[in-house]
Design a protein around this nucleic acid. Structure first.
Lengths: 339, 339
DNA sequence: TTGTACGCGTTATCAT
DNA sequence: ATGATAACGCGTACAA
């Protein structure tokens, strides 16, 4: 194939057909005022020459882009890619494209991404903020020019006036704890994640509320925190199981990879009652079926649904079905999956 | 914040400053002919009013979009998301955005995605074709208007005249087989994937070439095929291990989830020499460390590198550093990771 | 039924 | 040193 030198535009078609540009435009858009025969001629020529309307031109004219910007920490975390899975399909089904930009949990990159998307005049922004985002000026820019923003997946602190779609991590942890209580456990440990992540505390609240609602005394000996580093997880677990007089019989963990590290460690040291310790973590990794000592259940966070709810809300805002000032908070429930 | 009624454009700035639009434009773009003082005034006003150039207008003028289109089967497959991880970063670093569109391995959706991206006048297309793509007309459209296309991750059959970036799955399988041979195995089984996927055969070729180069006789009893369905994997494994006189001592599998199913099954039936069977699969899943009976090694496919090579090649084509007709084939080597 | 004219926001060329 | 004008491709109000 040869590289086509003259792009096929309305003007080009008009010259070929010896008509005016506007007639061609109207014919292609099926204006009722255009003669049927003319329409046919135009449409055939357009098809033959493979005319494709230029979106940049239409965007400029209509002052919108039919593009949704998505900023998220990264695409290696399966949680985020699962949100995008649902989100992209819903967007496409509604005639929108999505531009994805990774912040790598770096505030500078997040700001740059936001600026690029602002130039692109995206019709809306969906953002999972970086760990270090405290100031929201780069996001507020969008709302300042009337572009709606939905925060999702990660909860922005100190920023109440915004639309949010979040996993109901409180409810998930509550149900997991309740499940363990129902199975007879009273010594249930909670292994939290990084303290700077709000989910760590939301989950703790779910845990502690379930205990309280069942009149089970809370002991701080049964609470420890870690990050995603294996060594820290191990020392956290060591603390939780330190007192041989008072050993937990069940464990709720912040995230499955952390839980797997914990389980692996407990097995490796041949913890005496290990086979009786029942564990639950957030994630529901498909891989669990291959484990010899699997958790008894998983907390499925439904990330696809989080993504879908985010774009649904955003499209409602774009279409003025919801007042932009009428700030929404959507919580997507978790589901306990017993293995 | 109030929704801004008048968008901040060059014209708007010009009126505020009582200058012409072209002066404002030049001032913002640091034209040498503009008075320093004027520049300062304009730039300050632009900053105050948060002027952001409209990309649609620039696109229209410059006849390019600085957007790369990416079409892939889906974002749940970790292989593809890992390609995007590398690709997006490289694109962003070079001033390009990416629009991702999932085909769900559905040809119709792939065509629709292609058409949308064509309207968007993406500067280039990177595509991992669907399983059912035999006809390439929807992709050829891009090259017809001079937009370069790079096929990646999946090999398009019957389409030699194209740019490709693929994992060197032959080499990966050859090395895995060689590794097992070096460990003394002579009865090595190959568990292939769906026969309609070309990688299944490329990997088989790697396997059989390694055997041949080591003068190990090939036996068709040691070759079986499956898809991603667990039951089919089990019956394939049953076939491979059917003859108790002639049981494989090692196994190379098409993909790790398949391999895990195979291992799980062999353990469940208490295959007599199971602990001596050494297995290798494609993937290098991070969770392998939690398995009790892990594969002895994994074939790491380096998907990030596949994505990065795809966009590198595409940018070279966009920048005319490579002739569009000078079709490239880039193979990204696999790496054997011993556990 | 068709054509003319204008504007979307920006940049580049040519005048002043 | 600054301004007027045209052009990118498209849609539409208005004129013919």
């Amino acid at each position: 194939m040869m590289k086509q030198n003259t792009p096929v535009t309305l003007k080009f078609l008009a010259e070929k057909l010896k008509m005016s540009v506007s007639t061609v435009s109207k014919a292609l858009n099926n204006y009722p005022t255009i003669n049927e025969y003319t329409k046919k001629r135009v449409q055939e020529m357009a098809k033959d020459l493979r005319f494709t309307p230029n979106k940049s031109a239409i965007n400029l004219k209509e002052r919108k882009s039919r593009i949704i910007g998505v900023i998220l920490p990264n695409l290696l975390d399966h949680y985020f890619t699962r949100t995008i899975y649902g989100l992209e399909q819903f967007a496409t089904a509604n005639g929108y494209n999505i531009i994805i930009s990774q912040s790598q949990d770096d505030l500078e990159k997040e700001i740059q991404s936001a600026n690029m998307l602002l130039r692109s005049r995206v019709d809306g922004l969906i953002i999972a903020i970086s760990k270090h985002t405290q100031d929201y000026a780069h996001v507020d820019q969008f709302e300042n020019i009337g572009t709606p923003v939905v925060y999702y997946a990660r909860n922005p602190s100190f920023n109440l006036n915004c639309h949010k779609v979040l996993g109901n991590t409180f409810q998930g942890c509550y149900e997991a704890t309740q499940f363990l209580i129902d199975r007879g456990h009273r010594k249930i440990a909670y292994l939290g994640g990084p303290k700077m992540i709000s989910f760590t505390h939301d989950r703790f609240n779910g845990y502690i509320n379930a205990l309280r609602d069942n009149d089970i005394p809370f002991s701080s000996d049964f609470v420890a925190y870690t990050d995603f580093d294996q060594e820290n997880t191990i020392s956290a677990i060591q603390n939780l199981f330190a007192d041989s007089e008072n050993v937990p019989t069940a464990l709720v963990a912040f995230k499955e990879p952390i839980l797997f590290d914990a389980i692996k460690y407990l097995r490796s040291i041949k913890h005496p009652n290990f086979d009786k310790v029942e564990c639950i973590g957030f994630g529901n990794n498909a891989f669990i079926t291959y484990l010899d000592a699997p958790p008894i259940a998983s907390i499925e966070e439904n990330p696809e649904s989080v993504g879908e709810n985010a774009i649904k809300l955003l499209l409602q805002l774009i279409n003025d079905q919801i007042e932009i000032q009428d700030y929404q908070k959507v919580m997507v429930d978790c589901k306990l999956v017993v293995h």
